[in-house]
């Protein structure tokens, strides 16, 4: 099982290793937010620190969401051409077929998140190495959940024209209601209430707490929510990969 996952992982990684510039292109969106939006947040951080300490952790969660939610797109041509079917006839475990791909996306995500954090220090973001490492772990866990869900959805929908609108109508509200860009408690009550129903909001708060070296309740809640998301999305993903005729 570990061997099989590694095999699928290495195969998925190969085209990317031959063309690593893709990793940098994937960073362009969060970098634009960092450079063109971050400076607008002058006062958000409050007394405890600069707005960068508040904004960068949320930006990492956003990177995790956008980076892995679109992972399913890479599966669709392989569903259509017959690659997925070929692998489904091999004795390899269906779980390995899913997680080998997911882990490739998570590896890319963690590398991107590290680069983004490094870029953020140029603007004044400060955090110790171990805090950043903890933050990357939480981002990676979230990436596993979102990536597994993305592949499951791609396998169900099988067409780009169906996949893209479903993604956009899920990912954008999840992002807006997570409090990545602005604090949700400044909005009207109904909007704040909605954001409380968004599991990502807790992950964002957890990431902020972690990056502030605060390992209390918020960090714990964020971690638990991310792990719960992995449990839900991974079991959905594995079920979908197991399903006949998928």
């Amino acid at each position: 099982m570990i061997r099989e996952t590694r095999l699928v992982f290495v195969r998925a990684l190969r085209p990317m290793l031959r063309n690593p510039t893709v990793i940098v292109f994937g960073l362009s969106q969060p970098l634009l937010y960092l450079v063109l939006f971050g400076p607008l947040l002058g006062s958000v951080g409050g007394a405890s620190g600069s707005s960068w300490q508040w904004f960068v952790p949320g930006l990492l969660v956003q990177l995790s969401l956008f980076g892995t939610a679109y992972a399913g797109f890479s599966l669709i041509p392989e569903i259509r051409s017959g690659v997925v079917e070929r692998m489904r006839v091999t004795p390899v475990s269906r779980t390995a077929l899913l997680f080998g791909r997911v882990l490739k996306d998570v590896l890319v995500l963690v590398v991107q998140a590290a680069l983004l954090t490094a870029a953020a220090t140029l603007f004044g973001f400060r955090a110790s190495v171990w805090v950043v490492l903890l933050g990357l772990v939480l981002i990676g866990v979230l990436g596993v959940a979102v990536g597994a869900a993305s592949y499951a959805l791609a396998l169900k929908l099988r067409q780009e024209y169906a996949f893209a609108p479903v993604l956009a109508s899920t990912v954008i509200p999840l992002m807006l209601l997570s409090g990545v860009l602005l604090p949700m408690d400044r909005g009207p009550g109904w909007l704040y209430g909605l954001s409380r129903a968004n599991p990502l909001a807790y992950v964002v708060e957890g990431e902020r707490a972690l990056m502030a070296a605060d390992l209390g309740g918020r960090a714990l809640t964020g971690g638990l929510v991310a792990v719960a998301l992995v449990a839900v999305c991974a079991s959905w993903g594995v079920r979908t990969f197991h399903r006949e005729n998928a």
Binding site: R11, P15, P77, E78, R80, S81, G82, V83, E85, R86, V89
Partner: peptide, 9 residues
């Protein structure tokens, strides 16, 4: 199968 089994990339 009828389709192509090799990944194009």
């Amino acid at each position: 199968a009828q389709g192509t089994g090799a990944g194009m990339d």
